[in-house]
Simulated scan of single mutants.
Amino acid sequence: MVQTSTVDPLSLDFAALRTLCLVEDSGSFTAAAQVLGVNQSAVSYTIDRLRAVFHDPLFVREKGRQIATARCQQIMDEVRPMLTTLDRLARPEAFDPAQAQARFRLACNYYERLLIVPHLVALLREQAPGISLEVVNSRGRGPEILLHGGADMLIGPRPVAEGGIYVSRLWAEDYVCLMDPAHPAAAGPLRLDIYLTLDLIDITYEGNWTSPYLVELERSGHAITPALKVPSPAGVARLVAGSTLVATIPRRLAHEIGEGLRIVECPVPGGFDITLVWPPRVHADAMHQWMRGQITGLRRQFAGE
C-alpha cells in the first residue's frame, strides 16, 4: 500500500536509489538485501520511504518476484544514469586493468556474441580478471538501452538514430549464401534469377532489423518467397545441412558456423558496417576508454588491417 505521508525528496540519498535498482535487478527484497549486506527489513524500510516520495507502490509481487510498476520503470530510467555517473566520479582517474574491480555491460546480438564476445572474455581474463562482463541482448534497441543506462557499450550494425551517442566503425560486412554441399546451386556462381527460386530462409530478427540485402532486393523490384522464416541466425547451419534450404547471412558469421557447408557469393549487394557505440556519460572514463581500445584492437583480426 502506498503511504499517504509526504517525504521530502531531498531527504533521499543515492544509497536509497541504488536499493531501488537492486530490487528491480534481483526481483526480490531478500536478494537485494544480500547484495547490500543488510537485513530485509532495511530494504523494506527504504522502499517504503521511496513509495512515500513518489506516491506509487513501485513494486508489486507477481509469481514470486517483485515487478516494477510503470512509474518505477520511469524513475529508474532517470536514476540509473545518475548512479553510473556517481560511480565514475568516485573511481580514480588512473586505470590499471590488472587491479580493476568493475562490471561492464555490453549490448549486442547473436553475431557479436558468437564472433566478438569470446575474444573479449579471453582478453579480460588475461589482462583484467577483476572486470566482470554482462552481455545484454540489444534487440534493435541498442542506442535506447545505452542512453537509459542499461548498457555501457553497444556493438552491432550502425544505429539508425545516432543523436547523443558516439559511433566508431569497426569493419564492413556483406552477405553470402550458406547451403549444403550437395545443393544443386552449391557449385556457384549464383545468378539472381536462380537465387529467387531457391528454398530461402528469411531471418526476421524479430522485426528489429531488416537485412540490407533485402532492402536492395526490394529497390530492384524483387522480393524473396521464403520457404522458412526464423527469428535469428542461431541454428541455421543445422537447418541448411542435408536440406535444400539456403540461408543468406553475414560473411564472417557464415565462416564461423558453416563448417562442412558450402559458402557461395550472394548475388544481391547489401553491405553494412559493424560499429562500436557508447554514450557520453562514459566517454571520458578511463576504464571505458581502455575497453574501447581493446575492442577496436579486434579490428585487425576481423577486418584484416
Score class of each variant (00 low, 15 high):
residue 78 E to N: 11
residue 134 E to L: 15
residue 95 F to P: 02
residue 75 I to E: 04
residue 137 N to P: 12
residue 100 A to R: 07
residue 160 V to T: 11
residue 104 F to L: 07
residue 101 Q to Y: 12
residue 91 R to D: 01
residue 155 I to A: 02
residue 155 I to W: 03
residue 132 S to I: 11
residue 172 A to T: 15
residue 74 Q to E: 14
residue 120 L to C: 12
residue 165 I to M: 04
residue 126 E to A: 15
residue 135 V to R: 07
residue 114 L to G: 04
residue 137 N to E: 15
residue 160 V to F: 13
residue 135 V to Q: 04
residue 105 R to V: 02
residue 152 D to T: 00
residue 94 A to T: 12
residue 120 L to A: 12
residue 174 D to K: 05
residue 151 A to Q: 09
residue 71 R to D: 12
residue 85 T to M: 14
residue 171 W to Q: 03
residue 136 V to I: 11
residue 119 H to A: 10
residue 144 E to Y: 10
residue 96 D to F: 14
residue 81 P to T: 01
residue 141 R to Q: 02
residue 134 E to R: 15
residue 100 A to H: 04
residue 127 Q to A: 10
residue 107 A to D: 05
residue 138 S to I: 02
residue 116 I to H: 05
residue 101 Q to N: 12
residue 79 V to A: 04
residue 117 V to P: 03
residue 79 V to P: 00
residue 116 I to R: 01
residue 137 N to G: 10
residue 150 G to V: 06
residue 155 I to H: 07
residue 159 P to Y: 01
residue 101 Q to F: 11
residue 175 Y to I: 11
residue 83 L to N: 06
residue 97 P to E: 06
residue 131 I to E: 00
residue 73 Q to T: 14
residue 140 G to V: 03
residue 110 Y to E: 14
residue 85 T to P: 11
residue 148 H to I: 06
residue 115 L to H: 06
residue 162 E to Y: 00
residue 167 V to I: 08
residue 71 R to C: 11
residue 82 M to D: 14
residue 135 V to N: 01
residue 122 A to K: 08
residue 88 R to Q: 12
residue 106 L to Y: 00
residue 122 A to D: 09
residue 91 R to Q: 06
residue 121 V to K: 09
residue 174 D to A: 05
residue 74 Q to R: 13
residue 171 W to E: 00
residue 114 L to E: 11
residue 157 P to M: 05
residue 86 L to G: 00
residue 137 N to Y: 09
residue 103 R to L: 11
residue 152 D to Y: 04
residue 168 S to P: 10
residue 87 D to C: 09
residue 86 L to K: 02
residue 89 L to D: 03
residue 138 S to N: 02
residue 84 T to G: 11
residue 72 C to F: 05
residue 74 Q to D: 12
residue 75 I to P: 01
residue 137 N to F: 04
residue 123 L to Y: 05
residue 84 T to R: 08
residue 122 A to F: 01
residue 136 V to N: 06
residue 141 R to P: 07
residue 126 E to C: 13
residue 100 A to L: 09
residue 115 L to S: 05
residue 158 R to Y: 02
residue 113 R to E: 15
residue 101 Q to H: 14
residue 112 E to C: 05
residue 85 T to W: 14
residue 131 I to W: 03
residue 144 E to K: 15
residue 172 A to G: 12
residue 139 R to Y: 13
residue 163 G to D: 15
residue 91 R to V: 04
